[in-house]
């Protein structure tokens, strides 16, 4: 098996000889206008079913709720007052003082007319962020899949094959972000067993998630959500380039006094080895419904095996001893 933790190039690690530059997203939530075009473009391209119940969710303008088997882009809306904004700014300042990565080299020339002191903390702000599958470097769903339905593509992304998946659901538990889910209407139908009736055209009871538009990538196209995003909040490209862009953008915001800005998923030493989908957040990850310290469930596998092995060996030794004794 491949590497379980730590920085790596996932496609190479998965055995691709002819690998492409790793592809991913950089979602700059500071310029997201919450239009949800990404949600619709994704559903249109992938022909996913409507999965809302046509009722207000009770979560500001968010009536989608979370990622799932039929929703592969989800826009969160968080309304915050002055206190919360101040706290976010403080925790961001603390991160900067800790020495979080900033752009090396001379600072960019700054327009002398710009307000350099932190902006007057507004009374209110409305955070908007488009969530998506993280396509982790070390992917929990991929690592636990027993059938091989989930696989690592040559672009470094993680894709599930709905005609191989047996619907066991282990990947659902394996994802630290709660992204992948089984599509359920009580029946089970893979593409080979679908009826011709329109209502049953969707595969059911198999795991479904964002494919990073694998079918578009192989045709040299960009994912539907990135293509449609009107403000380039969702940026698509080579992962390494995007991380560099993300770091620059955070530095730019910090220079404007917006210390609340921070990256999520850009640290390749984190519990999933960094993610293919990097985010620029303006508050703690929990505010956006994201786990603050995601960790792939197989990260401790070597140690677990070692302990198990040790325990097993100990048990074997104890049993042998007992057997030996009783002879």
């Amino acid at each position: 098996m491949g590497q379980l933790t730590g920085p790596t190039d996932p496609a190479t690690d998965a055995g691709w000889g002819d690998r492409k530059p790793r592809k991913g997203f950089f979602t700059d939530t500071s310029i997201c206008i919450g239009c949800k075009a990404c949600e619709v473009a994704c559903k249109e391209w992938n022909r996913n079913p409507r999965d809302g119940d046509l009722e207000l969710l009770g979560s500001s303008y968010d009536n989608t709720g979370h990622l799932g088997a039929s929703t592969w882009r989800h826009v969160a809306f968080i309304e915050q007052g002055r206190d919360r904004i101040e706290q976010a700014r403080e925790s961001g300042r603390a991160l900067i003082d800790l020495g979080m990565p900033t752009l090396p080299g001379p600072p960019d020339p700054i327009d002398t007319r710009a307000d350099l002191k932190p902006p007057d903390t507004p009374e209110f702000r409305w955070l908007m962020s488009s969530d998506v599958c993280k396509h982790c470097t070390h992917a929990g769903c991929l690592d636990v899949c027993p059938t091989g339905a989930l696989f690592r593509t040559e672009f470094g992304t993680v894709v599930v094959q709905d005609d191989v998946c047996n619907g066991c659901g282990t990947c659902v538990a394996g994802c630290p972000f709660g992204v992948v889910e089984r599509r359920s209407d009580g029946t089970y139908a893979t593409p080979t067993r679908q009826s011709d009736r329109l209502a049953h055209k969707f595969v059911t009871n198999v795991a479904q998630k964002c494919t990073l538009c694998y079918d578009r990538l192989v045709e040299d196209q960009i994912p539907a959500c990135a293509k449609t995003c009107p403000t380039t909040s969702i940026k698509f490209g080579d992962h390494d380039d995007l991380v560099a862009v993300a770091r620059e953008r955070v530095a730019q915001l910090h220079a404007q006094g917006r210390t609340e800005a921070r990256l999520y998923g850009a640290n390749e030493h984190d519990g999933v080895g960094g993610t293919g989908s990097v985010f620029l957040l303006l508050d703690e990850p929990e505010v956006y419904g994201l786990p603050p310290d995601p960790r792939v469930c197989t990260a401790d596998l070597p140690q677990m095996f070692k302990h198990a092995g040790l325990a097993g060996a100990g048990m074997f030794a104890a049993a042998a001893l007992a057997f030996w004794r009783s002879r």
Partner: peptide
């Protein structure tokens, strides 16, 4: 359109 209707389903 179902995709748009589920995004904002109810008059408020």
């Amino acid at each position: 359109l179902p995709y748009l209707s589920e995004l904002q389903p109810e008059m408020f």
